[in-house]
Design a protein around this nucleic acid. Structure first.
Lengths: 197, 197
DNA sequence: TTCTTCCACTAACAGTTGTTAGTTTTGTTC
DNA sequence: GAACAAAACTAACAACTGTTAGTGGAAGAA
């Protein structure tokens, strides 16, 4: 029991440091010797905790993906209007990101370095997530919540672009809470879509 | 004369291929041997045309930066309202990107691999460009063109995030013209800001 | 004590990296 | 045909890459 916890804790420490390194230098430019140095150990010692460099990337990417998925599922359950659903979805997304900005940055910028078949799996998860947001927007259009002449693909891509670069410029020491930030972001984006804003 | 043209043309061919490779695999993961193979030559032969791998990245990044700068300067000259200026600025930005989507992608995602002092110079150019957009938004706020309670930093970051991921998903074979796309994007973003939309 | 688990070590591997030096081929101009 | 520049070549370099094998110490449980 206790051993397992300790093990996980050390392994997670490695993964967390790796996330920082991957975010800073990018996955390819970050070497295992760099990572080891950050932890004060030798490169070979890392392999007591992880199987490979890519395993770290996989863990980071798929763990984040799972969190986003869970968050969106919660929102979809709610019985509210499309614009409200979109608002909640955005806030949820921001909150998940804010919980681990470093992992979020890696999730977004480094996932392409996954090899097959994980890359394919990852992209499928991603397209599914995006499509569920797209569906919300389309529902909003059909119920008259949003403008009729909206290009939903453009809208959803704009939405995700805005969301996804957040880890790059959001200051974690900032006084603004993620909830509030998500709120503001949602306001800004949705009021650009709403019919009678 | 003719020699110079041929030289430039071959060098530009190398740089163009490098841009494609950097976009696909990322700067660090792209090797000079990969690049050489794409051109059907040996890796060492590349050095007849370029000084170093990083020189290629520098060329790509700073050439794009210059184009963005020029485009924005044109817009700033115009004597129009802030919202119109913003609209023109966005369209200009999209048009510059559309002229070379590959170089744009490299400009945005790979610039961090520049070494000092070029990295510093690049970031200064970038912050300057962003601040000029921010100024336009602030002007719009003070003239009543935009809502008073806007967080201008958030607004400008959202704007750039949306713009900057475009090369990632925009299809160059698409029927939609860059002008039109810029127009739509501007509409979507600005109407989220405008007071009486 | 003895056993076990965790976590680090040293040494080394085969392959890849950007780049250089020096040479040869190719095509054009006088 | 001689001269020239552009653009390719071969061979090699030192450094760095992710990773494996085998070892040993430390801590806690039996």
């Amino acid at each position: 029991m206790a051993e397992v916890v300790t093990n996980l804790s050390r392994k997670e420490q490695v993964i967390r440091m790796a996330a920082e390194l991957f975010k800073e230098k990018g996955y390819s430019a970050a070497s295992m010797r760099d990572l080891a140095q950050k932890l004060g150990i030798e490169a070979a010692s890392l392999y007591s905790h992880i199987k490979s460099k890519e395993e770290i990337l996989r863990t980071l990417c798929f763990d984040m993906a799972a969190e986003f998925r869970t968050s969106l599922s919660e929102v979809e359950k709610q019985n509210v209007s499309a614009s409200e659903k979109l608002r909640l979805g955005i806030i949820g997304h921001v909150k998940v990101m804010a919980k681990d900005l470093t992992a979020s940055a890696v999730f977004m910028n480094e996932h392409r370095h996954l090899s097959q078949p994980w890359l394919r799996d990852f992209l499928l998860l991603r397209i599914n997530y995006i499509n569920r947001f797209k569906t919300i927007i389309e529902q909003g259009v059909s119920t008259g919540d949003f403008k009729k002449d909206i290009d939903t693909k453009l809208a959803v891509m704009t939405l995700f672009s805005s969301l996804n670069w957040m880890p790059g410029w959001f200051n974690p020491d900032s006084t603004i809470e993620p909830e509030k930030l998500g709120q503001q972001l949602a306001d800004m984006l949705i009021n650009g879509l709403k019919q009678n804003a």
